[in-house]
Design a protein around this nucleic acid. Structure first.
Lengths: 225, 225, 225, 225
DNA sequence: GATGAATGAGATTTCATTCAT
DNA sequence: TATGAATGAAATCTCATTCAT
């Protein structure tokens, strides 16, 4: 059975954990407040102006602090962008409510729930996801982080597919890893077109089509459990 | 039947035809040579440094001409990038030779041939495709062009899927347009991971998996014609 | 006879007494400890990074106290540098023990002892001497202090030379003040090259040569008393 | 006999040749004019404000060009400072007229001529020499260049001293290299005090004293040839 | 006494574009 | 056509010093 937390392609959820742990958190409450204000301001500015066109002074102006204060907490634009992502990531990873209909833990039901969660999270963070594309397109380090993250998700989904194959529920001719990667990529692409580029599809259409394509592609039995 | 030239997602092949026709070609042979040298130099520089990080002076230096000369032929970086794309586009659109086994014009055979052509073209132009991502990510005008182009391809593929459905060869529960868009996106994503990010898959693996997933997803009969 | 305490050129031993006496010492033992930690930290940082490139925060970090605390004890970088110098100055002025062979208080013997003391002190504080150069080079006030100090030493040595001339022991054609200044400068320069720039000469070579040159230059009789 | 071109300590005449040859000269006459204007402006600004306190915009303002133009010719403050030094160096190395009285090529005469040339050159460039101190004090790369240059001069003078010793004209007890270094340092120090710090000595006093001290220190016979 | 967050003026640097030769 | 010097607006980043806690 496909495990919980399946996130198509894993994109948009880089942790960048490498550097985020290095800087120690503000020592005082005031510091924590200022830092949070800067991160919130940065998200607003990034979403409004794009990453490349936003200036540090716009962020500090939005946060109502001086430019010097910015550097108390971040080394530059890249670093505060990571901080913005980390906040968004929490939202991407911990949706407000359970996605899984306890009545329906069939493979198809799990896939559907996962896809729905992904589309919802993407919709909530669509602008930020575009910014992330922009940053990743220009920064190979960032791209590498995304690649590794995607691979981790794909590996997990690949194991789930393998499991279904072993249980005779999925097409045994497919390479589990490649299929996992391809289908996850498909879902992320659908979200990109729908919410990033603004094609008009309803959430239900997206969930329905993506789930049907997953199910068909794996030759899943819709009634199996 | 799915028509020839099916290009998954249509990505990476924007024509930007709007502006490219405006400027008339160099009057003299020397001019034509200089222009060609600049375009070739630009591709080298873009692929080496990325679009954002490349400077016009790098291009003119690579082309061994002065900065002033650049403006004789192009209005700026965007315009020469279009010129670079146009050259690459010929390659993307006209694969060296037909990959289609004349014996096998079954739906699955056509899909396979299309996918193979796409992967091969992507592989030949992988670096440029990444640059294109970078440009599109930062330029909403460019993004819109890509979106329209993708939609045109998807529409064509959607009609092909509709046709298969009408003939009873494909799953009638699927929305043809969304399925077309999703599956084309899947293929473009696979190419991106394999050749853009450097995951190591062989061409045959990519073709095989993508074709199997298309066929399964549409519930095509592998033997139908 | 040339008096004790002759310090070639007098360089590197500015007292800056004007300001150093103004601030009164810390009232509590804890305060004294903190102040001492800051001075010690400053010397480490100055010697590691140079005066210009060292930041106050580096010093407070090295001293493990906050930036605010710094200002409890010092008005700024210049003032703590003076404090560092005062500590070093004790070492420069009071070599561990008299180097003077009581048997040999001949003019040449005194010169030799003085030169040796100077080279040894310079060697112990070579890094700091370079820092001092850096500060003096950029601060005309500091330069003036050094100039006056040099002049005071030179005047004293000039009187000693005059005395030797009057007693018929030194070349009467020399101007005592200029000769004193020149020969003191010579010794300070030798120390700078040897210990500041790292030319490899032994202490004995330096002492021997400098003393011989002094003696020759003044046409001293090596056996006179 | 001490050779022509003896330059005490060699200080203030670094060539920094390492980098100066890298950048190719302006292609046009206009470019050469602009570059020269910048160098001249830089010298004025450096001498007026000191190296550390001068800003690039002051230099471009003085040269009546834009800030961008500066970077057409120089990478930064350090590089234009090298260019200023190179101009001064020509003056230091090629004094306007022959210093040597053809009637007096005795060792003492040669030393006197050399010292006089050095003092004159130092006086003409005194402000710049102080700037050089400032730069060298803060930049170890620069210091190293000076060290090597000094050593080259000292080596040459050491050979001359050795020659005098071999001919029985100079004190054989002295180490030629150390004596050369020490006496050259002495002269450079005298120039620094007189012209850098503004002690009031006449040129003749400086020449006379320095020459007498050299002669005495080496135990030269004033009448020898 | 000790803390450490906040300040903000100002210097450096880049590079697409123009235009006189 | 070709040249390449000149332009200049605009963005980043530093760090000594203050002051509320």
């Amino acid at each position: 059975m496909i495990t919980r937390g399946h996130a198509p392609d894993g994109e948009g959820i880089p942790s960048l954990a490498d550097t985020s742990a290095l800087r120690e958190p503000p020592a005082t409450a005031r510091g924590a407040r200022t830092r949070a204000a800067l991160v919130a301001a940065a998200r607003i500015v990034f979403e409004r102006d794009g990453y490349l066109d936003s200036r540090l002074t716009d962020i500090t102006a939005e946060a109502a602090c001086s430019t010097g204060t910015f550097y108390t907490y971040f080394a530059g634009k890249e670093e505060i962008f990571q901080a913005v992502l980390e906040v968004a990531q929490d939202d991407m990873l911990h949706p407000g409510m359970p996605r899984l209909d306890p009545e329906d833990s069939s493979p198809v039901g799990v896939i559907e729930a996962s896809n729905r969660a992904y589309f919802e999270a993407y919709r909530r963070n669509a602008k930020l996801m575009l910014i992330l594309d922009q940053v990743a397109a220009g920064d190979s380090g960032f791209r590498e982080v995304r690649r590794r993250r995607s691979r981790a998700f794909a590996d997990r989904n690949a194991r789930a597919i393998k499991d279904l194959q072993d249980r005779g529920l999925a097409d045994r001719d497919l390479d589990p890893l490649m299929a996992a990667r391809a289908l996850s990529g498909m879902v992320s692409r659908m979200a990109y077109y729908a919410y990033g580029l603004g094609e008009d599809h309803t959430l239900d259409e997206l969930v329905e089509t993506s789930t049907a394509l997953w199910a068909n592609a794996l030759k899943l039995d819709r009634n199996a459990r």
